[in-house]
Design a protein around this nucleic acid. Sequence first.
RNA 1: GGGCCGGUAGCUCAGUUAGGGAGAGCGUCUGGCUUUUAACCAGAUGGUCGGGGGUUCAACUCCCUCCCGGCCCGCCA
Length: 545
Amino acid sequence: MSHPDPYDVLDSDHAFWADAVADAVETRSTGDPIVIKGGVSPSGVPHIGHANEILRGAIVADVLRERGHEVRQLFTADDRDRLRSIPRKLADLDGDLVGLGEVDAGALGRNLGKPYTDIPDPFGCCDSYGAHFTELLRQEVAKLGVDVAFVSNTELYEDGSFEEVSRHILANREQAREVLSDYQSKVDDDYVPFFARCEECGQLTETITDVDLDAGTVSYRCTDSEAGDGTIDGCGHEGTASLRDGKLPWRFEWPAQWKVLGVDFEPFGKDHAEGSWPSGVDIAENVVDVEPPVGMVYEWFTLEGDALSSSEGNIVTVGEVLEILEPEVFRYFFSKAPLKQRDFSIENVDQLVDEFDEFERVYFGESEVDDHQRELAERAYPTVVDEIREERIRIPYTFAAVLGMTDDPDQREEIARREGHIPDDAPEWAIEQALARVERASEWARLTDNAFNYELKRSAIPDHEFEAEIEQALDELADFIEAGHDGDEIQSEIFAIAKRHGIDVGDFFGAGYRLLFDDSEGPKLGPFLAKLDTAFVVGRLRRER
RNA sequence: GGGCCGGUAGCUCAGUUAGGGAGAGCGUCUGGCUUUUAACCAGAUGGUCGGGGGUUCAACUCCCUCCCGGCCCGCCA
């Protein structure tokens, strides 16, 4: 094949995969602007896996722009595809997940087999089911700061953009059959590469009985279609449809998009790699008559070890993830090698953020690493952040989670400074951005209810068992606090009391955390106790309430 | 059944393109310091590089084979 294999395109002596892809695109390119495309059918709630279709392309686009090219990034909503099954979970335009019971599921069931853009929006807020979920994705992409133009497939059919290529494919349907039959055994002599929309029931049917290119129509019979395990019943109607009232089968539609939109590069999931891609290349070259784009395969992510699945409801949306980490950390995740199977773990998201922080330090030469790591950071970092600013400050993620225990912004900043996470000469904007992580890390702690989700056990005293020495020490501390002292004084006294009683300071702190949080660790105790109401603290330290 | 991708320390991952020292961070443990267990310093711990075979002076890297996870080879995208 004259074009690169979608796996091999990632192989090169570049440290960063996007440079290898950019090389291939430059070799193929027929001039600027370079067009990069992605696409997905708006079948349900968009999840982080769908972001591959946007972010992988956006990263390559950045590299190409850095090389001086003009780049245009497109995303096709493949919204003329038909609804084949009803997802278990939907989401409103705020991105909040909604079960099927809260919408008219029956209405959806009656629309099986129809294009997404012909189905009413179950939430009633958009023009159609397809428009609803495309809008949801558009909102998520906006949060990532990617400049990408959305294109509706349905509109391309309705405004005639696909008409010429559809006509061409139908005129050469013998050739189309022959080419596709190398990839799909089901293709027989009756196969016509077009689905017509039934004028009676609105379903797309694959049974085309005649083609009249002069009139620009096809004749069809509305027959049953298979969908997964089940069958969607056709209505049996026989009629004619124009080339704008139907669609090309995916294997032809993809190359048709390449032709109509002038696509130079397209990343796609591994599900396409062995099926649609090879046939798409063949069809592009030998039926549609267009040079196929450079293709690139990406592996799928798992979520906490399990497959992401809209229909199964095992998903996390981009919006949800951006509640707990910065967009640049999210982009960083997508800048890593595409062929590696990766798990996205909310549980361990602190590790991802730590990794990003280190990556950033490497870029700014603040961390000693080997040549490969440095070269990778040099190339990849600029595609991950929207602006390179060296004075940026990152508060370690788990530390930010701890800072979340105090609501007072001034106190957060003060603690961060005291612990050396904010330099004295830090600019205001950098401090503001750094502290913004506190909200995200706190949300993460709440979401996962992990060790950083310190919750003051105010209503009832946690189970506890202390040695006599520690109990005496706690009583003394209670007396000290009752007498009225500030946070620093209390903190000092904790150490002094521990010393006097000959008990381990750690054990003493541990006792305090146990009584207050039912945990073995927690916030800096002195200042924390000083902020609570004295009566409660004293009573709790005496194990009375 | 056939093809393809992935499998490196407890965890997250580099390194495999052109064969030569198995690595980083986190975690864990020990010690130090101490206004902490949220910080810092020093040290230690840790892997049959999925298993086996082969080629080679030398294999995480190349070849064969097997195992595990996933995708494709029907439909749909």
